[in-house]
Amino acid sequence: MTIGLLILSLVAQPVWWFGFIREWVTADRRIRQERLTFGSAVYSDKYEVRHFVLLSLLFGLIGSVISFAVGMTIPLGWWLIYTALAALAIILGLGARLPITIFVGSVVLYVWCNSIGVTQQLIAPMRQFSFSGETVTLGNLIILLGVALFTFGIWLKKIGGRFASPKIFAQKRGKLIAGYPFNELLVVPMLVLVPGNFLSAHLPFWPVLSLGGTTVTPLFLPLLIGLHLTIFKQNPKTVFKGLSKAVVILSLFILVGGILSLFVTSSTLIVLGLAYLCYLGCLISTRWHDRKQSFWFSKVDHGVRVLGIKPETPAAKMDIQVGDIITTCNQQPVSSETNFYEALLLDPTYCHLKIQTPEGDLKVTETAIFDGAPHEIGIVMFKD
């Protein structure tokens, strides 16, 4: 019964559904853009939606188990502020751009409301409804921030750069270049404990727990995890792997800082501020390092640039990477999409390529292709 009620509360979580709709719209927009730019979708499936559903629930389950194991308790006032800001951010399209900013901002807003007595003024008339005015150590929120960043790092390592969907941009002089946007969001439904029995007072069947002599109610916290970043000059997998490592290391330091804050409460806001600055530093450093590279995913005069590889196609089985330049196809020099497919037709069942990597190395790769359908080889390139 208790488990069923908690699952029901997850299904009714509006922020999760806002995130689901957001990912669906994002995937639709990406697929339409790919079809308009390249004639067909690079990734025809809505992988953003698949990632959102599966990984949100997976991380939510793991996070809930850990939360209950350590007795993670958070203030009701902060839960309300964070949930409202998370919902508003997703509606405004900022959920993937500002997940950590929303978390830190909600903590600062909660502390400010406490300092001027707004929180207590709101809680006082609500105590008749079994709302608790008991304060919760803010160190718990620092630990929760560390958990959020650790989850972010693992999530980024798992999916960052796996689906390198190119988008064409025009530079100031009209030169076309490709960039690789990463624009995904998770809403991790993590069970946390909130002081009071405000739900069970009106819904007798709602689960209530006792923690250290204090009555607490389990609630789902819609924890935002997301990133919006476009890579222009490096292999996306390499970039996100490096960012993932930096964020995971940062999260471990924040967890230590959160534990320290449990004992030295005056250090809470200092740890929070340093954590946020370090997080921004990771993002700024990643973006700056990408922009300072001399390489661009641009058109070339001799050969054709590989912008993407469609899954489950002959190209996916070949030794081809995003950014490579195909110089010859079936022993014929190529310099455009038209040249490339004309060369493929010389041998409609086989493809032999000579390739130059972005580093200048040369390699040869070959594979069988679909008979009579050279356009289905699966290599995405600039259109003529």
Rank of each mutant, 00 (worst) to 15 (best):
L260R: 05
G258R: 08
E48P: 01
V192H: 03
C351D: 01
G146I: 01
L109S: 03
R35M: 11
E34D: 12
V248L: 13
Q171S: 11
D301L: 11
C329H: 00
Q331T: 10
K167C: 02
F253N: 04
S115N: 13
F169C: 00
I320W: 08
L58E: 02
T268N: 02
L344W: 01
V147H: 02
S298Q: 13
T313C: 09
D301M: 07
Q356A: 08
V334H: 03
V364I: 14
I254K: 07
L307T: 03
V25K: 12
Y47R: 07
K241T: 11
I143N: 01
V256H: 01
S56R: 07
G281D: 07
Y43V: 15
L144Y: 12
I31K: 14
L211V: 05
A84W: 02
T268H: 02
G39R: 05
T214D: 02
L255R: 04
G117A: 09
C282D: 01
S298L: 02
K158F: 11
G212A: 07
I159T: 15
A89H: 04
D361W: 07
A86D: 09
I377N: 09
L191Q: 06
Y276F: 15
V239Q: 03
T338A: 06
I7F: 15
I270Q: 01
I177W: 06
I123T: 13
M1V: 06
L76A: 10
V108C: 04
S130Y: 11
D384G: 12
M126S: 15
V256C: 12
F20I: 03
S132E: 07
L211Y: 09
K245V: 13
Q321F: 10
L54P: 00
A87D: 08
H302C: 02
L346E: 12
L262H: 11
R35N: 13
L149P: 00
P204C: 05
S285H: 09
I326P: 14
V264N: 04
S106G: 01
K354R: 13
L199R: 08
Q121C: 00
L88A: 15
G213N: 10
Q356F: 01
A315M: 06
F182I: 05
G213T: 12
G303V: 05
K172W: 07
V264E: 06
V334S: 07
R22A: 14
H202F: 15
W155A: 07
E312P: 00
Q13S: 12
K46F: 06
V300N: 04
L209N: 02
L227S: 09
L203Q: 10
V15A: 06
I231M: 08
I100K: 01
L186G: 08
L61R: 03
F198W: 14
T217P: 05
L58S: 13
E337Y: 02
A275M: 06
M72P: 00
